[in-house]
Design a protein around this nucleic acid. Sequence first.
DNA 1: GATGAATGAGTTTTCATTCAT
DNA 2: TATGAATGAAAACTCATTCAT
Lengths: 206, 206, 206, 206
Amino acid sequence: MKRNGRTPLAEDAKSRNKRQQILEAAARQFSSYGFQGANMRDVAAEAGVLAGSIYYHFPSKEALFIAVHAAAVDMMTEAVRTAIHGIDDPWQRLEEAAAAHCEALNGANAFMGVIAPIFPLIADGVRHQLTAQRDGYERMFAILVENITIPDTVDPKIFRLHLLTALNGTKFWYHQGGHPPAEIGRQLVRMLRGATGSPPGSDTRT
Amino acid sequence: MKRNGRTPLAEDAKSRNKRQQILEAAARQFSSYGFQGANMRDVAAEAGVLAGSIYYHFPSKEALFIAVHAAAVDMMTEAVRTAIHGIDDPWQRLEEAAAAHCEALNGANAFMGVIAPIFPLIADGVRHQLTAQRDGYERMFAILVENITIPDTVDPKIFRLHLLTALNGTKFWYHQGGHPPAEIGRQLVRMLRGATGSPPGSDTRT
Amino acid sequence: MKRNGRTPLAEDAKSRNKRQQILEAAARQFSSYGFQGANMRDVAAEAGVLAGSIYYHFPSKEALFIAVHAAAVDMMTEAVRTAIHGIDDPWQRLEEAAAAHCEALNGANAFMGVIAPIFPLIADGVRHQLTAQRDGYERMFAILVENITIPDTVDPKIFRLHLLTALNGTKFWYHQGGHPPAEIGRQLVRMLRGATGSPPGSDTRT
Amino acid sequence: MKRNGRTPLAEDAKSRNKRQQILEAAARQFSSYGFQGANMRDVAAEAGVLAGSIYYHFPSKEALFIAVHAAAVDMMTEAVRTAIHGIDDPWQRLEEAAAAHCEALNGANAFMGVIAPIFPLIADGVRHQLTAQRDGYERMFAILVENITIPDTVDPKIFRLHLLTALNGTKFWYHQGGHPPAEIGRQLVRMLRGATGSPPGSDTRT
DNA sequence: GATGAATGAGTTTTCATTCAT
DNA sequence: TATGAATGAAAACTCATTCAT
């Protein structure tokens, strides 16, 4: 059977494309229905392949989820990194980070949808991998929090965890038409900022 | 749903027990594995009945979940109501509420496990029912928040939502051995309380 | 536990009543959904008892069906017997019989609904019992057919079977608003009557 | 429902075979036990696949039944069309049609078994689809009936319906060893033909 | 006579996964 | 690389039936 005469490069590009399409379709499905609720056939259909074909690119549903999650964390990390780049004031850095997180999370990019909830996954092993993937991201926030001044009565770790889960929680109640996501993220930091005594609202961003 | 007029003897007690046992087993399973991840057979096994028997008490898996959720919300409401009873200071009321919520959520009671996450459920109809069940609880918090003083820059609704999702978020990171849940809840409120500038405990609002 | 003071007679009446109610409910359900499609719980609900209670009166679903069928055949037999009583002309007797059959079958009485189709039943034993129950009824028609004059080319047995199945078939296409059932039954006989050479329509009944 | 453009080689043949085998097994099971009485496991076993595999070819039990029914109606239509081809005399056309119908219905082809009874099906939607499928077939008979001469006292529609249900009814009483099916179908038409006054038996068919 | 509860086998259906081609 | 087909285990749910009370 003669193969059509496309160059190996094009082939590769197409294949990487396919992988990407599957990844994106998976992101959408996992975001909408959760890990267990999503099914490979729908992912495949949305990616324009048959269910069996996914297994050429990913060995299992869990691996697919992990890949989506990794991509999501990477994107999120990049978004936050960019948002705080060049800003010096610690509180403002945190505020920008929160705004970026919230915006990415509730924006059009389906990948982010897998970040917010800790899906009840089948195997513990999977959870460990996800935790590892989030690690760098959480460390970034840990550093942001280390640099702000908070009362002695507050454990910085608890501060960070409350902050991040509240941020992720927006995924469950944010809806278009209300406050824009970035604003919601900023308000959270402002609420907490008051605690330091610095006048809230003294930052001049819109 | 009126019960027939038989004497409420051992018979009835046993029967109500079975229903209760199923409910509790379901709470444990749903908490551990989520709505989709849990399965009726395991719920039944844990309740000491056969899978089919569940359907005598609950018409469907969804109905079972909704029943568990309702019980959970009721318990949580009661816990918070009790915690704030007799306390006047608005911030302290909120702090006690948060502490109670956090404690109930991360305590031994499996029912609470279904409160924290918004499981991706199959039918929209279910989500509506769950939302309706939570309504009263959320209103209680809305009132608590209304009575505290927060900066004009912060929307009370956003304040409440951030507060509650952060509280619920503890379910995902709390682990025995660290700060006790009540303390974690209190710290969250304390972080936010600083925003008013008033030293904790010094505010005199009715 | 003291029993309430109703007389044994009343008790009996009530019980027979219950049996009858179950029978009627079963007739309705079997007529609507077939033997397999009907379920004991719905029969019970319609009869105002619980599913388990049916088993006091009937040992099994099949037995219940057979009882309904027996009652139906009896009613049908009686209806036809009454309809042809006092009529002498063989063709007219047949016509009246057909009219009565059709009318009963498509009337309000749910019992008749189990006569028309030969439900695909689980056990062969059941089918035999049903056949036996119909026997007397079919013999009655056999005699009616014996007395009319039909061409030699037509086997009276085939004539009878075609006649009866066509009659029963009306159950599947008759609908209120069209010709009345009795008329439909009469037309069938008239179609066949023509074969004898006697002018159709020469009978003057409405 | 366009097939993809692969070469129709052994591959396709095998696959179409499997689908066909399932269809045939289903026809046998539905014919024997009715829609509700038949079960997917037995259909699968008879087709040499596992129950789950059926769902690759047909989305549901109902869809499977509808496919069987469609095939049955098509075969029946073809059988009758062939039988009346080249015949001019209206009565003789009807007689051949009846003979063909009866023969197909009571022959070895299991598909026909789903034509005779109107199974009490679960969903109304299904019944509508079946009715639609039968439509063309019934129209064919309607035309056959339009062309014969029947007394004014007889509604052609009723004539057709009686004719068809009687024909279908043979499925319930025909048994090998008696008159051959074709003969049974012919006798029915002959009975009705007499009504026109034309001497029955005067037709000269071989 | 009747009931409430439970049973347990059976039903349709789903779905991640495999594999020859 | 991708596909079409099949797998097989598991899922939710049904339902005739039983039985202690």
